[in-house]
């Protein structure tokens, strides 16, 4: 099962190494990892995508909480969240194929960020499923290169009760 973990950490030297070392040393799996500063100075947010059986995920969360520099860990499996990742993808697109590639890009609301005679570079954002879907649809044209961010996620705000 895929889990997205939001890990709030003290932004100290070595904190990334502590987290990464925890995963590698204990044989846990990291699918993606994203780190960036937060509003609060000295605090960074890591978003880690991992997978494993329930007992493994429980250990991952507990082990992360045990690190002295980790302030808070949230497993988004338990809460309603908005999840996004971004991808830049360079697709082969000569004159014959360009229109078809652009149509797919349009359907998925991708942006064209670069173009040449033989390829198109698209920027796509969405949740993990959407980005995967775009990739698989573009595959038949020939993908030359991709660069992806890891997943970032945020808890949804409380919605008013439905009437």
């Amino acid at each position: 099962m895929r889990h997205v973990l939001s890990v709030l950490v003290e932004n100290e030297p070595g904190v990334l190494s502590r987290v990464a070392g925890l995963f590698s040393g204990r044989g846990f799996n990291i699918e993606s990892l994203n780190v960036a500063p937060t509003l609060e100075e000295g605090v960074s947010l890591m978003t880690i995508t991992t997978s494993g059986e329930e007992q493994i995920i429980e250990q991952i969360v507990k082990q992360l909480r045990k690190l002295v520099t980790v302030i808070k860990v949230v497993d988004f499996i338990d809460v309603s969240a908005v999840e996004r990742e971004m991808m830049i993808v360079k697709v082969q697109a000569d004159d014959a194929r360009r229109a078809e590639v652009l149509r797919i890009a349009d359907i998925f609301r991708c942006k064209v960020v670069d173009v040449s005679l033989n390829d198109l570079t698209l920027e796509a954002t969405g949740d993990h499923g959407k980005v995967q879907a775009i990739l698989s649809l573009l595959a038949r044209f020939g993908i030359k290169e991709i660069a992806r961010t890891g997943t970032v996620a945020m808890r949804r705000s409380m919605q008013p009760e439905s009437v």
Binding site: P13, S17, R18
Partner: peptide, 14 residues
Amino acid sequence: IVGITRPCTKHNYL
């Protein structure tokens, strides 16, 4: 040494 002992200390500092 901080890097070397990261997995075998409770915490470490430079």
